[in-house]
């Protein structure tokens, strides 16, 4: 039937695109991560030769090994990069929450006419280039940068602070870049909240502070959780921010992957880093996807 065919095509076209260009590449990455480095093009071995048939396939499989992963696990550089990524992602997610919550709370309580402008104000930086926004901090955080000039001028410090090329700069960069992702979901839950709930809590004997802890915060939880995922997951694999602000001493997975691939041309190790990063993020991504789907269902 024509209607059935149409529906089939509608599903198949985007589905096939994503299968080929999103899912299939992961298997190639997986395969290469199990291969060995070689001086050749492409720079890894074995390469699979379909003309060799089933025997060739078996021989190909038998040559795969976990060498790259063993290398990752035994070299302290990569182990450090992993834990450093985790630490930076967790801490900056938390810092972003600290900045974003009062902001979202203030936005939700702003007068009706002001709220759309504030939302727009949060979204606008998101539309401007990520790279440019990170770059903007370079001029501010450098030793001779504006922040140090300002602090010395006020007399708070006498010597310029070394912020640039430290993890602190990375925290600032991540919080700054991902702040809209944290603010918007929290704002969305707070804005929907019925103010009479707070009045009811106060009427039932809560103080204002207690009402905030017992009513506002639990109701904002879905937004907080969504925001944390939206910051944590990309922060974990961040490349631009640590590279530009963190300097050579700040190790992160995304940076390691980039360097292994572009500088060392070690494709198997770069692929293994990608697989480890992916495995780390699979659980949060699945949780995030479930929640996004559930919100869609609820919107129906």
């Amino acid at each position: 039937m024509a209607a059935g065919l149409r529906r089939y095509l509608l599903i198949v076209v985007p589905y096939a695109w994503l299968l080929v260009f999103f899912l299939a590449p992961f298997f190639i990455v997986l395969k290469i991560s199990l291969s060995d480095l070689a001086v050749a093009m492409p720079p890894y071995t074995p390469t699979f030769d379909p003309s060799a048939g089933w025997e060739g396939f078996k021989a190909f499989i038998s040559q795969l090994d976990f060498e790259s992963y063993i290398f990752l696990a035994t070299d302290s550089l990569y182990v450090n990069a992993f834990f450093s990524s985790l630490q930076i992602a967790v801490l900056s997610t938390f810092l972003a929450l600290l900045v974003a919550f009062p902001m979202a709370y203030g936005m939700a309580r702003a007068p009706d006419w002001l709220r759309p402008l504030l939302v727009m104000g949060v979204i606008l930086p998101f539309w401007t280039s990520f790279l440019i926004r990170v770059y903007a901090w370079v001029g501010i955080l450098r030793s001779e940068g504006l922040l140090n000039q300002f602090l010395i001028w006020t007399g708070i410090i006498s010597e310029p602070l070394q912020i640039m090329n430290t993890p602190v700069a990375v925290y600032i960069g991540i919080v700054y870049s991902y702040l809209p992702f944290m603010v918007l979901p929290i704002y969305a839950t707070l804005e929907k909240m019925d103010e009479s709930l707070l009045e009811a809590a106060i009427d039932l004997g809560c103080s204002r502070v207690k009402a905030f802890w017992l009513v506002t915060l639990p109701l904002a939880m879905p937004g907080i959780i969504a925001g944390c995922f939206l910051v944590f997951i990309p922060a974990m694999g961040e490349f631009v921010i640590p590279e530009l602000l963190g300097g050579s001493r700040t190790l992160m997975m995304g940076k390691t992957l980039w360097n292994e691939f572009f500088s060392n041309r070690d494709w198997p190790v770069a692929s293994a880093v990608a697989i480890v990063l992916l495995l780390t993020l699979v659980v949060p991504i699945v949780i995030f996807q479930r929640q996004a789907e559930r919100q869609q269902e609820a919107g129906r």
Partner: peptide, 8 residues
């Protein structure tokens, strides 16, 4: 892909 790190 909304949250997948770019490098991957």
């Amino acid at each position: 892909p909304l949250v997948m790190p770019d490098v991957i």
